[in-house]
Each structure stands twice: as C-alpha cells, then as structure tokens.
Design a protein around this nucleic acid. Structure first.
Lengths: 251, 251
DNA sequence: ATGCGATTTTATGTCGGTCATATTATCGCA
DNA sequence: TGCGATAATATGACCGACATAAAATCGCAT
C-alpha cells in the first residue's frame, strides 16, 4: 500500500528522494546503498519500483550496481550534473552559493560563444523566434513570473540557432540557472526587468550579424546576472542571519 | 529464454538498441513507441526489463510516457546529448561528420576557458596529476592506444582542477570526443603523437600560472585536433568512395 | 596451520502474472 | 447532435519465484 497523500508519481518521487540523499552527501561517494529489499521497505514501495528508480539514477551516473556486491554511489566525476532533473534536485535540496557560482561560471563560458555562432550562422527564422521571446519579455513588465518564461526561450533560442546539438542540450543547464535566478528574484523584485536592455543589445547584434558584438553583449548580460545573483545571495545570507538573531532573541 | 550469445546485460543492451533506433531517426521525434508488451516480445525480454530500459531512456530525456496514451519520442531539444552513454551510442551507430564537427566545436568553447581557470585556481596537486598524465602520454610513444588513455586523464585533470562540477561533468563529452579521435586515428597512425608538444605547452603555461597563455595553448591544441579530425574524415570519405568504386568494378 | 579449490550464500537481474490508475474512446440517451 | 456515463486500454505498481554472478565460507591437501 502506498504511504499516503503525497505519493504522486512514486517512481520519480523515490528516485528524487534517493538522489537527494546522494547529492547532499548523506550517502557518500563509494558507499554501498542498502539492499533493494531494504530500500523497498524504507520507501514503502515494491522492489520493482525501487529498481526502476535505481535505473534512473544509474542512467544519470549517480550509482552503479554489481551482482551480489550491491549498489554503490559512484564518484562525483561520473555524475551527469548537466542533466536537467539532477540539476533541479540539487538546487532544490541544497541551494548553495557554491552551486550558484559554478552555474554562473559555466554559463559565462558557453553562452557568449553560442551567441557569436548564432549571429554568424543562425537562420532568419531562428532570429525571429528569439525576437518574439524578447517582445514577450518586454510585455511581461514587472511580473517576474511572466518574464522568466520567455527569458528562457530567448536563451534557448540562441542555443538552438547554433545548430549544435550539444549546445542545445546545454539549454537544460541554462534553464536550471534561470529557475534559480527566478527564485532569488523574490529577494529583489526589480532585478529581472533590468536585464531587458541587455537582451535588446544582444538581439540587435545578432540581427546585425555581428559575432564579436553579440559575444560582448551576451558577456555583459552574464556580468549583470552574476552581480544580481551575488547580491541576492548576500541579501539571503543577511536575512538568514537576522532571522537566526531573532530566534535567539525569542529564547 | 534470452535470445542467444550476445545478450550480456540485457537491460543496458535493450536500452541501447532502442536508443539507437531513436538517435538514427528510425523512430522520429513525436512518434509513439510500440506498447511495452509488444516491445517485450520484439526484444524477447520480459515487460519488467523493457520498463527498466525505458526508464533509462526517460532519464536521458529521449522519451516520455503517459498512462494510456503511450510512450513517445521527445523532441531533440530535450535529449541530454552531453550524457556519456548517449554520446557513445550516437557515435557508435552514426559516426557522422556533422557529429564530429559539433563535438569539436563545443570542446573549442569549453576547454580553453577551463584551462585558463585551471591555471588560475588549480591546486599544485591538481597540476601534478595533469603532469603525470602528460608523462604517460610521452612514454606511450607511437602506440595510440596507450596514448589515448592518459590523454583523457590530462583533459579530465584540467576540468577537475577548475573545481567546477559542471565542467567536470563535461569530461564525459571530452571522453566521447577522444574515443572518436582514437577510432579515426587508425586512418592516420602518426597523428595522436603530434599533439604531445601542444600538451607540453599547456602544461608549462598552467605551471606558470598564466591563464591567458594557458587559454591560447589549449586553443592551439583544439585547432590541431580539428585539423586532424577533418583530414581523417576526408580520408575516410575518399576511402569509402574508392571502396564503392571497387565494388562497382567487381560487378 | 595454511594456501587454494570447491561449495554455499547472497544481492542483483529476470521473469510472468495480477491489479491499479489515468485517459482515451465509445456508447447511449436526451 | 451534443454530452454524460461507460467501457476499453496502455502505463504504473506490486508480488513471488527463479537465474546468475560474485563474494564469503568451508574443506581438503600440502
């Protein structure tokens, strides 16, 4: 019998729970997981479901199984951190500054170059799609929820326009980064909208078919994004400090 | 009863077979797969095994399932092409020039920057590990098999030294690229060894803690790699043309 | 006692079947 | 002809048993 209310898609749910234990380091690299039967009783599902969950985590490089020897956590180097779900689970469970820093760093590496390629080789249809996303961002005004969705399409559009499947796949990472930014934007509601003119500059450069300009424009947007995230995180830190000071005051 | 000899790990095996059908376009984006029961009889395994295989492909973003509606191939944008296995399957089934071009392009974007970060922030222990890999490459001489293994460690070492988990994950992509280069090197046995002085230059720059120099040095290696791959592929093309001409001559 | 080969044990891997659930398709009625 | 009730169906979950491989153990011979 399934546990109770919150057991929607048990399969994905269990996979996420186990993944969280791994990415948070509760179950460390090299450790052997409990047996499948024990996991089944711990998570209150059948062994079949556990096995399907484990095969998801195997596919993402988190674990490996050997007959008789058991299932162990693989070393980090094998974790596919560029995977959409794994990214989401990691941030959801442990929204650390280090994670944010690394995510921003890798975006700074990839997106400006992708933008240059887009300016050089993107089709007019590709660019039109990017422009449409820009217009929707503009139309969203100060509603940061309505803003973030076309924002993602803008960035994905650039990656798609490169015609490079690997850069397209990088869209999953960008998506995680934007979701992260969106969450942090509650600490600074005006921030997202400030990126609009930077997006405009990118759009102009790619329409002008100017790779160098496009690269620089995207680089400036990345700079802004980094500043926003840094300041949001420091706000969060001081917010947490204040909250814990209050808690101590209560006692 | 399993089919016959070549059914080692049926689970992974079936997943790979289905993945190949998808990446080669036999089963196109948006199409609905056969029912699980039909797949089970097609691949001569139980429905349980099919479900585990499908959950692997779900985890890699290739397919999605909805109750009653069936399982369909997701659009390419959702495929996690940066995944180690998916990369391997794609190249194994369809070693196209386009694939090689894209893989090289994304390496050119990521690795020089990673190299600069490595020069700036890598620990001495990290650099020592990279140097060890270099020495083994040197010791391998003209044996391109023995050369390629430390070659991968060299590049992975740089990515690891950045301290960025996402760049570390990119090691899977580099691995696929190097395996590809290795396969192509049979067409030009001397080529791999020629990269040694380029690796040496990288090593010197990162020991000198010179990010700009390291970036440039890695960039030059990427240029060389691209030239090697291009020439190997054109050799392969002309080889194929000759072979087919011979076949026609036979008839 | 001690190294080593045979045997047992055990955890993952595979199987077939049943029931649950969601969603589509169909049927029947107004 | 529209629409609500009903049936059909494909995935989702569960169960119990057996297969297989590798680790752990046992027993034999040295």
């Amino acid at each position: 019998m399934p546990r109770e209310a919150e057991s929607r898609q048990s399969n994905t749910h269990v996979a996420r729970e186990i993944a969280k234990l791994i990415v948070t380091g509760v179950w460390q690299e090299g450790w052997t997981l409990p047996r499948e039967i024990e996991l089944a009783s711990q998570f209150d599902v059948s062994r079949t479901s556990i096995r399907e969950s484990l095969s998801i985590l195997k596919a993402k490089g988190l674990i490996a199984a050997r007959q008789k020897a058991g299932t162990h956590v693989r070393e980090r180097i094998n974790w596919n951190m560029l995977d959409a779900e794994l990214l989401e689970w990691t941030w959801a469970e442990r929204p650390s500054e280090e994670f944010a820093r690394q995510l921003t760093q890798v975006r700074r590496i990839v997106e400006p170059e992708a933008c240059a390629i887009c300016a050089e080789r993107g089709s007019d249809a590709d660019l039109a799609r990017i422009e449409r996303a820009y217009r929707e961002m503009d139309a969203a005004g100060m509603d940061s929820r309505a803003y973030s969705e076309p924002d993602l399409r803008f960035h994905r559009g650039i990656l798609t326009a490169t015609g490079n499947d690997f850069l397209v796949a990088f869209g999953a990472t960008v998506e995680a980064a934007l979701r992260m930014s969106f969450e942090l934007s509650t600490l600074n509601p005006g921030a997202p909208r400030k990126s609009l003119p930077y997006h405009r500059a990118i759009l102009d450069e790619i329409w002008a078919r100017n790779p160098d300009g496009a690269r620089r424009a995207m680089h400036r947007l990345m700079d802004l994004t980094e500043r926003n995230i840094t300041s949001a995180l420091s706000r969060r830190r001081s917010g947490e400090a204040m909250a814990s000071a209050e808690r101590e005051g209560d006692a």
